[in-house]
Nucleic acid binder design. Structure first.
Length: 476
DNA sequence: TGTCGGTTTCA
DNA sequence: GAAACCGAC
């Protein structure tokens, strides 16, 4: 009987998993997950992501157990691990669902060629994106740089239906490679255990993801265009971490959304599926610009006087002002510290940052506001914010996170124009008029002890516009 | 998926 | 005097 190895990555599910389905159709399957912290260029997971991964893997193991498929856990450089595990399992083939980041693609390519050299069958599948990034092209044959035409072209294309979870296998493969113990990976925080808020807010896993999808399409989707901007309301799908980890696939979301469509909610469903479109667009950007998290897509922004906190990891070639800033006010280090902990004295910003710190997630409207505040009002480089979100979000996504930070900063493809600067006070009035959200996360709001704004919103906005104007003049 | 300051419109 | 409207950033 044939044995296949199915390599799980950002697709921790058993349904709509083409690689798993392919392996099962050939015979017996061994599942593998590799925690690769060694391969060149692979970005180490943030703290909140590690927490989610731990529980996501437990859930995957349970899901695979129901199919009688054993899950092998290994740490190390993926090509080496694959070599070992393929040999130990006497597998004839290895299957996986495609990844689209630069370093990940290099790793996968290496695994594929090494498998071929060893006379093994290696095959990859489309499962994480509705549209392969190299297939969505404009009239000139180039990838789209603007969202609206991108999504217009992409969403007109056929989307395959989700595939079912495979049938339970009668017997597990004879040769089972050793597995490491998940607990030894230290993915969960211990001293201190800061994950209490995450546990309260989230249930990682495939079933929970589908429950979230179903609950959303059962009700809230009808009011999505309005309610999604109100952070105090349960108006969003909260699917982001489930999509990030692949507990739910975009094909499943697309299919469910299309099925939930009625004449009445048609427009609202389209607004929702456009968010899948943004995800596709972000991944297209990362595919075509593997350095999306490091480099401005608009190179002229390298001359913008972004500031960096004084701490390790600050690039020396960032064109940054020294700490403290020349024109007075709190130092970049103090600004960043206040922003991270939600002590800027700007209520909506502080509420968002505290929601993030407590739950590993922030409402999208508020993400735009806190990001704009960091980049435009505090004058800090978007990469500082991108790194913080990467470390704290349970949905930290290698494409969405940097693409959206560049969107806010104005340095990205189809980005918000730099002069589109959110006023956090106006946004507060408009989207949290009853202060429900702000009071939930900042109990001291409106009371003595709540700090004054760390910078003047109006003055700092004007300063950002001036710096931008100088940049434009210099580039003319 | 913006804000601001100015002008116009209308009750 | 509020609300709608507009251009500039």
């Amino acid at each position: 009987m044939t044995t296949s190895l199915v390599w799980f990555r950002d697709d921790l599910r058993v349904a709509d998993h083409p690689a798993l389905a392919a392996g099962r159709s050939e015979g017996a399957v061994v599942a593998l997950y590799v925690l690769d912290e060694e391969s060149e260029g692979i970005r180490p997971l943030g703290g909140a992501a590690r927490w989610w991964l731990h529980h996501g893997l437990e859930d995957l193991r349970a899901g695979l157990e129901r199919l009688n498929v054993p899950l092998v856990l290994r740490r190390g450089a993926a090509p080496e691990v694959l070599r070992e595990v393929l040999e130990a399992s006497s597998a004839d083939a290895v299957y996986w669902n495609r990844r689209y980041g630069g370093p990940e693609r290099s790793v996968d390519q290496r695994v594929k060629s090494e498998a071929a050299e060893a006379g093994l069958h290696a095959e990859s599948f489309q499962a994480s994106l509705l549209h392969e990034p190299w297939t969505v092209r404009n009239g000139q044959g180039e990838h789209y740089k603007v969202f609206t035409p991108f999504w217009k072209a992409a969403s007109a294309r056929h989307v395959r239906p989700p595939v079912d979870a495979p049938a339970r296998q009668g017997s597990a493969p004879a040769n089972l490679p050793d597995s490491e113990d998940l607990a030894d990976w230290d993915l969960l925080p211990t001293h201190p255990d800061w994950a209490g808020g995450l546990r309260e807010a989230w249930t990682p896993g495939e079933a929970a993801g589908h429950q979230a999808l179903e609950d959303f399409l059962d009700g809230p989707v009808a009011d999505y265009p309005q309610d999604r901007d109100r952070p105090s309301r349960p108006g969003t799908s909260r699917l982001s971490p489930y999509l990030r980890w692949g507990h739910v696939s975009p094909f499943q979301v697309w299919d469910a959304a299309v099925r939930a469509r009625t004449p009445r909610n048609h427009q609202a469903v389209q607004t929702f599926t456009a968010e899948l479109g943004w995800r596709e667009f972000c991944w297209s950007q990362l595919y075509h610009h593997p350095d999306l998290a490091e480099a401005n897509l608009r190179p002229e922004f390298s001359d913008y006087p972004w500031q960096w906190p004084r701490e390790s990891g600050t690039p020396h070639d960032a064109g940054a002002f020294p700490d403290p800033v020349p024109d007075g006010g709190p130092s970049p280090t103090a600004r960043v510290r206040a922003w991270r902990r939600g002590r800027t004295g700007v209520p909506l910003v502080d509420a968002g940052q505290r929601e993030l710190w407590a739950t590993g997630w922030m409402h999208n409207r508020v993400r735009m506001v806190t990001a704009s505040f960091l980049v435009k009002n505090l004058g800090i480089h978007w990469r500082v914010g991108e790194q913080w979100f990467w470390d704290t979000l349970v949905d930290a996504d290698a494409a969405n996170n940097p693409a959206n930070w560049q969107w806010v900063a104005g340095s990205g493809a189809d980005a918000a124009p730099f002069f589109r600067i959110f006023n956090p006070l106006t946004q507060h009035d408009r989207f949290d008029p009853d202060d429900d959200y702000v009071r939930r996360w900042v109990p001291s709001f409106g009371q003595e002890g709540y700090p004054e704004p760390i910078v003047d919103v109006k003055q700092s906005r004007a300063a950002a516009l001036e710096a931008y104007q100088r940049l434009r003049d210099a580039n003319r």
